[in-house]
């Protein structure tokens, strides 16, 4: 009993300080200018033009002739949350930067609805300031994706990147923050909602959960990895892969993630993996600093070597004893 206890305590003693020594997480420099309604140059305009209706639960219509006023419910999908808008990447925008002037009139004219919206690349393409995102590379990958090829023209970057709420997740997330849920929600707005999905396809939406029941601990997996880990082809020059492949090409092999050469290090943890490759004396330690543990990909070197040494010493002891037994013939 004692000898095991000792061994156990010893391994713990060896193990934890080695992790603690490297324990210096979460030091994100204050990024971006402070977003928020108070700092936006267009908050007032937006309020007057649009948000008095689109930011509220109700809007009113007025018959100028009779002067009678009616209250109407603003459809949920037409509502723009101020909190979300003013903390999104395009927080310092006038609604009219993206939407035509015509929308200041109500009811909105029919032809406005057929105007094409700007694409991300129109503003971000070939701009030094945004070079680190490589919008051009993303555009290329997107054009190979199932969504683009199946629904060209209809399916744009905006379908996933909500124009009024999108924030950069993985790149700006502090390591402990859970950006995975937010990224997955970008897919689940359609793949988890029959109504929204039906806008794009007549196919019946299969339940996402039933399509993934081959995964054990499904809930845990879908909280610990993004959909795009399995559903994209990983390229080198883009930090977040956008080449969504047909379902038959999706990652189904456990060992792709659960092994020393886990694909997760090059995808989910791409932003952090450079500086944190061998953190904690654990293989692929970057995964641990994100509060996950991936069997097969995370191996404690201390436990591995400790274990090997223990086994070798035991076998050595047995071998020596055996030799004496053979020599002395017992």
């Amino acid at each position: 009993m004692k000898s095991y206890l000792l061994l156990f305590i010893l391994s713990i003693c060896l193990y934890f300080p080695s992790m603690a020594m490297n324990f210096s997480l979460d030091s994100n420099p204050d990024s971006v200018a402070v977003r928020g309604i108070d700092n936006s140059l267009y908050a007032q305009d937006n309020e007057q033009n649009c948000l008095r209706c689109h930011g509220e639960l109700y809007y009113t219509i007025e018959d100028t002739l009779s002067g009678s006023v009616k209250r109407r419910l603003m459809g949920e999908h037409l509502r723009v949350s101020r909190d979300e808008f003013y903390s999104s990447v395009h927080w310092n925008f006038n609604c009219l930067d993206c939407h035509s002037e015509g929308y200041t009139a109500f009811p909105h004219a029919l032809e406005l609805r057929f105007e094409e919206s700007w694409g991300c690349i129109d503003c971000h393409g070939y701009d030094e300031k945004f070079a680190k995102y490589n919008f051009e590379g993303i555009e290329q990958e997107f054009q190979k994706s199932v969504h683009y090829t199946a629904m060209e023209g209809e399916f744009t970057c905006w379908e996933c990147h909500n124009p009024h709420t999108y924030k950069v997740h993985a790149r700006e997330a502090q390591s402990s923050e859970n950006f995975i849920v937010e990224s997955n929600n970008m897919c689940l707005t359609c793949h988890g909602s029959p109504e929204k999905f039906g806008l794009y396809s007549d196919r019946k939406l299969g339940g996402v959960m039933t399509k993934h029941d081959w995964l054990p601990n499904q809930t845990l997996h879908l909280q610990a990895v993004r959909c795009i880990e399995c559903h994209t082809m990983q390229g080198d020059d883009v930090m977040v892969a956008h080449f969504v492949t047909p379902k038959d090409n999706a990652v189904k092999n456990c060992v792709d993630c659960h092994s020393q050469n886990s694909i997760l290090v090059g995808s989910l943890y791409k932003f952090q993996s450079k500086e944190a490759r061998s953190k904690y004396g654990v293989l692929n330690g970057v995964i641990l600093s994100n509060d996950s543990y991936v069997i097969g990909a995370n191996r404690s070197l201390f436990i591995s070597y400790g274990g090997i040494i223990a086994v070798v010493l035991t076998l050595l002891g047995i071998a020596i004893h055996s030799i004496f037994r053979i020599i002395i013939k017992r």
Binding site: P216, N253, C254, V255, D256, H258, S259, I295, G296, R299
Partner: peptide
């Protein structure tokens, strides 16, 4: 599982689990 590897394995990962 602990030493899983795509190329060599005693029992493949999902069976092992």
């Amino acid at each position: 599982m602990l030493y899983s590897n795509p190329d060599r394995f005693v029992v493949n990962f999902s069976s092992a689990v």
